[in-house]
Simulated scan of single mutants.
Amino acid sequence: MSDKPSDDQPSASEIPDDVWEQFTRDTERDIRASAPKEPSARARMVTERLRQQDARGETPPGWRTDPVRQERNVRTARRRKLWAVLGVPAAVAVALVALKPSLLPGDPFGTGTSQAADPLPAETAAPTAPPGASDPETPTLDEPFAGSPALRWADGEAGIVLPEAKAVGAVSKGRVEQALKLAKKLLVSANLDLATVRGERPEAALSVLDPQQPGTVDDLDTALRSPSREHDPLTLFSRFDPDRVRLVGDVIKTRGRMTLGKGSHGGVAVHADYTFVYPVTRADGSTEVARTIVRRAVDVELADPARYRVTAGRLLLLKYDEEIGNSSCDVHDGYLHPEFPLSRAEATRPTGPTTDPYDRSRSLDDGDACGTVSRT
């Protein structure tokens, strides 16, 4: 074999010195890195001790099997799985809310499309305009006030908020407070008591009226016993025929106010102006819901028994007016007769002027007893 280098391989003398030195250093480094290393004496002792403990089942905590570390790893894995599971529904929910913010409770983005309307504060002065238009929703057995301004009104007796009692002229604060409480009792019994609404006798309302007042309690008794055009209990009491109509649920919406003044019989006069909204359905099992709206203005006085022939602790009924929305006209049997839009015949439609039964800015003198209502 010839030692002569081939023509295509350079001889050592032809390789530059700096290149040869770099090649030598790299080669020595690689040899040292790949050579097996003798473990230190301490490493051999630790390895042997662990081997013996492992053989006896005594592997110390923290060496590959630390239970705290394992539990932490498990919890981390669980969290990752939980977020992975929740991630898709959360993304879907975010997409739905982005498309329809009204799905959120309240109105967090100020869109004005809140599903749960905030209740109105108590009325303390006469409104200057009717309530704004509501969404044209159809009332149902589950949502009998849907599409009505009364949705934001107070429920029942909570809507009768008494003004602060204070002395009126020579009438003490205590007497004024008594008059306010009696006036509220009259309104509640006459318009909100479920027995009264079902057509029963309003005993509590009659009990606060003065029996010595000529032509008052006797006339009301006659109206309740034998209703007619001349003696109509609906002028003071809200009543439905239980054989034809039933109340939907037990909530009657209420809105109004009371004011105080000096009486003409040495006492304190109370003026009450309230509107009541009754959701009803037919008693034959129909699911159609209608609403009847009744507004009442009542003036009473707690007179001075020391100066006038009156019964102490009873009210004089001075004046009472009413306006009824959605009830058949010219029926004088002592009951309200709501009309249901889906079953109302053209011949029974009212022909009088159209009024808004929710408009509390109007005087009752401005209305027509048998007109057409713009909404219910």
Rank of each mutant, 00 (worst) to 15 (best):
V168C: 04
T216Y: 03
G112T: 07
A84N: 05
A91F: 07
V188D: 03
P211C: 09
L141Y: 02
A126F: 02
R201G: 01
D118N: 09
V188S: 00
P202I: 12
L186R: 05
F109Y: 15
P214T: 13
P130W: 01
T113D: 15
V217Y: 00
L209W: 11
E164R: 07
L162V: 07
P101A: 13
L186Y: 13
G112S: 13
T124P: 00
P136R: 13
S207H: 05
G174H: 05
A195G: 15
I160H: 02
K81N: 10
G159A: 13
G215M: 11
R201L: 14
A116Q: 14
T140H: 02
V197W: 02
E137N: 08
D193N: 15
A90K: 00
P144Q: 07
A84F: 00
G169F: 09
A183N: 08
R175I: 04
T138H: 04
D155A: 15
D107N: 13
E177L: 12
G87Y: 03
R201E: 11
P119M: 11
S134A: 06
V97I: 15
A84T: 03
D219W: 01
L99V: 05
D118M: 09
K173D: 14
K181Q: 07
A179R: 03
A116G: 12
E137D: 10
A150S: 15
L99M: 04
S134F: 00
A146L: 05
A179V: 09
A98T: 09
L104D: 12
A146W: 00
P121A: 12
F109G: 03
D193Q: 12
A133S: 14
A183P: 01
L182K: 03
V171P: 00
V92K: 10
L103K: 03
V88T: 13
G159T: 13
Q115N: 14
A158C: 06
D218A: 15
S207M: 09
P119K: 11
P163Y: 10
L209S: 10
T216P: 00
S148T: 09
Q115S: 15
G132I: 06
A170T: 15
V217W: 03
V176E: 02
L96C: 13
L96T: 03
R198S: 12
E203D: 14
L86C: 02
G106I: 14
